[in-house]
Design a protein around this nucleic acid. Sequence first.
RNA 1: GUUCCCGUAGUUCAAUGGAUAGAACAAGAGCCUUCUAAGCUCUGGAUCUAGGUUCGAUUCCUAGCGGGAACACCA
Length: 569
Amino acid sequence: MISNIHQQIKELLHEIGITGEIELTTPPKPEMGDVAFPCFQLAKEQGKKPNDIANSIKEQLENTQRTLDFIERMEVFGPYVNFYFYTSTLANMVLTDIHHQKENYGSSAIGTGKSVMIEYPSNNTHKEFHVGHLRNVCIGNTLVQLYRKSGYTVIPVNYLNDFGAHVARCLWGVLALHDGIVPEGNRQKWLGDVYAEASQKAKDDENAKQEIAEIQKKLEAKDPDIWPLFLETRQWSIEKFVELFEELGVEHVNTFYESDIKEKGQEIVDELLKKGIAEVGERGAIIINLEQYNLNIALVRKSDGTGLYLTSDLPLAEEKFSKYAVDESIVITGTEQNFYFQQLYKILELLGFDKKLTHIGYGLINLPSGKMSSRAGNVILYEDLRDQIYDRLLEESRSRHGDWSEEQILSVAKSLTLAVLKFTLQKHEAAKVVTFDINEAVSFDGYSAPYVLYVVARINSILRKAELVIDYSSVDYSSLTEPEEKTLVLMLAVYEETVRKALEQYNPSVIARYCFDLSQAYNDFYNNHSILNAPSTPLLQARLSLSSAVKTVLQSALQLLTIETVEEM
RNA sequence: GUUCCCGUAGUUCAAUGGAUAGAACAAGAGCCUUCUAAGCUCUGGAUCUAGGUUCGAUUCCUAGCGGGAACACCA
């Protein structure tokens, strides 16, 4: 919408003789106008002062025949020509469009005809599911939504690493430390604990390391000694993952298993050797020297013959494109694997693989006490965090709504819990390391999900009380003149561009911030102007229309973050 | 040691090379007979250092300092 408006202004500027690419910006303060044209470039080309140029452009614009109906006036501030819009004309354009398109407002067609596979969270079986994985799921979910909103066909998939050394270590822990024990309750968590325990035990125990290596060999050979235990324990993990994915709104259309493709990976390693791309390194391990690409040395097979992540990731790339006709494959992992993926992609390139592969890294989640590590057993588990937040929200909800049924309180607390989790993990730029403070996560003030959801609940309440059925296609917006109203309309107008920016940067925080900013602007409006007691009927209708549009866009933006709103809270 | 990422209020984070560097939390002072106070208003507070490029640098370049990550048998 706003790019539409920009386009019209650019055409107007072209008409008065300005050539070349025109850049428009947004002034820092609303008092300074709604859109600005900086004159630095022209000043440089013409060897004049920017201020003089700005003044002469303003004069030319005022004297030209052609006008734009939404422009009220123009002012020059130093090197800028600033345009002021009529709130009513702008509102008519933007709000009519929103009410017409409803939840499709903000969609675009830039991805029409293109398809993309998004692989996430690529977690490991036999390990716990912690807040780092949650960040991965949140980012992946949002990217899926952003691509869909932009017209792409999206294939969300998972890749379960069920066949690496971590599995061998866990199974060793089960056999050597907990043989015969049948865990109760959360068996996936139990395995994660055993994995952490086994990792600690094996740290300085050469004997244990030997035994673990033996288990991995047996595993890769599908030895009946270990295979049934592998299948059983893997199933424990998978059952839990499926449950968590459903809870979090993940909709994988397929799951790839490392155990299915690792053998093929070993064949590729042989092929790499034959082609002379790979060579035998220390102690008989198979390596690929990538030093000429400044990518060091990549290990593709261990000296004992077993494989690594890299061994399996080679066939995985081929598998993805042979199974699905996608144009691009995206993988989301922590930034600590950035270098690894550079190596992987280079090796695939050397093999002649020419499909588009993209790796998106997101920053680690640190605790105020330091780094999380599953091997050290120092992690915040997703379910523990969820339960803590739920308890706090339940308490909050109860204290606020003595008149509500227990059912209603439980339901709102549950919805808010997921909203809080998802919002908290997406409010920061994806690539950045964040310090996760649990106390901050369970506080619901300020830049948080409850703040945004509260605005939607407020609007619901107003729309209910209005008891009016409004024909949004024929609202008279001429009485909309307040600065708070204009700010809201302008923010609604930039939604589509905000979605595009988030997608271009692979950054959900752009959407989270937009939700918060729009909510803040609505609260500002709400506190300064009465809607239901508006001085005139047209104004009442216009403000209801505006409120309803804010709700539509907020719900749409939250939907991109896979966050559901609540009717009341 | 080599490579990559990051240094912005007390804290956690924003800012296509542009106008007076924005928020949130924390601290202090206020606002509920008025549409939900999970809200709002007001007050203090910041670009690691030194150079360079530019009309103009938080942003780009160089060096330094500080933090994090990756770098052959981990995942």
